[in-house]
Design a protein around this nucleic acid. Structure first.
Lengths: 164, 164
DNA sequence: TTTCTTGCAAAGAGTTTGCAGCTTC
DNA sequence: GAAGCTGCAAACTCTTTGCAAGAAA
């Protein structure tokens, strides 16, 4: 984690930005929640635990900055809020998402499933692909089991990672 | 077009909704702009030409309704506005999009490129897919040509279809 | 000092909602 | 006349911006 922050710090410096305490706290929160898909508000509340004086505007500005540096990806699952997803280091493509329409959970697929498809699109549509967004909406494995068992109660986790 | 409106009318009636003049005007606008990706505001302005008394709220309510009936799909290209895309009749999957990061144009891919990918996801992730969203961001064929020719001027079309 | 950054409050943009009046069955 | 629908304005939510004060080089 330290090394990762260090690399981000260098990245910031290389464009003459600083890694201020607020920015560092924000990055830490993102690292600690790599699996989640936090909204700006979510990040704000979590950062506040480390740095209570921080303002929401600073969080927005930091996330915007990290997005420009391609440290995070801004994603949108159609529920009206932007979510921020830390880029995996070394990943040469943006990962995919599985959004459950029952429980709102979001799982990630790290594998690159689009290699073939992208070759087709580049060739047949003459479109030079720079990035992609692939999201499946459906029923996650947990909810499928729930339904099989006719057990409709929700063994709930944190709400934060949920798309309403 | 008439038949299409008729089918939508029946669909509305089957759930005891009415095809009011305002709703019909909205549907017509959507049909006339099938290739575009209009925002609610865009639709509103176009509907106003046919039915000047219509209110923006009615347009929002109609689009919401049509979305529920699966006549339109609500999509989001990350620029802060929802866009509404008429479903192709008979299409068994939601089409894909090519968003140009140069000129903001949005092209559609009607072919189903995800058949294989979906089978993998359903099997390996045990995820029951109901819908998908696939968008590629990159350089469209028009802008590639522009760059080749070192001709940076924009032979512009309507702004409406553009993602800023 | 100069430049960057921050917190706060206000402003903006997009969307939703409450409600009285109007249609339609 | 009950139920559904509409236009308007107000409310709401998420995000951005202006600005004076603070921190870093």
């Amino acid at each position: 984690m330290e090394q990762r922050i260090d690399r981000i710090k260098k990245q910031l410096h290389s464009q003459s930005y600083k890694l201020t305490p607020q920015r560092e706290a924000t990055v830490k929160v993102l690292l600690e929640h790599e699996e989640d898909h936090l909204s700006a508000e979510d990040v704000y509340l979590l950062v506040k635990e480390k740095a209570p004086e921080i303002g929401l505007a600073t969080v927005y500005r930091t996330l915007e900055l990290l997005n420009e540096l391609e440290v995070v990806d801004k994603i949108n699952f159609g529920d009206g809020v932007s979510r921020y997803d830390l880029r995996k280091e070394g990943a040469d493509h943006f990962h995919h998402h599985l959004v459950c329409i029952e429980c709102g959970s979001v799982d990630e697929i790290q594998e690159d499933l689009l290699g073939d498809v992208e070759r087709v699109v580049e060739k047949d549509w003459n479109f030079k692909i720079k990035d992609h967004r692939l999201t499946f909406h459906g029923i996650c494995h947990r909810c499928q089991n729930k339904e099989d068992k006719h057990n409709k109660t929700e063994p709930e986790e944190k709400e934060m990672n949920k798309v309403k």
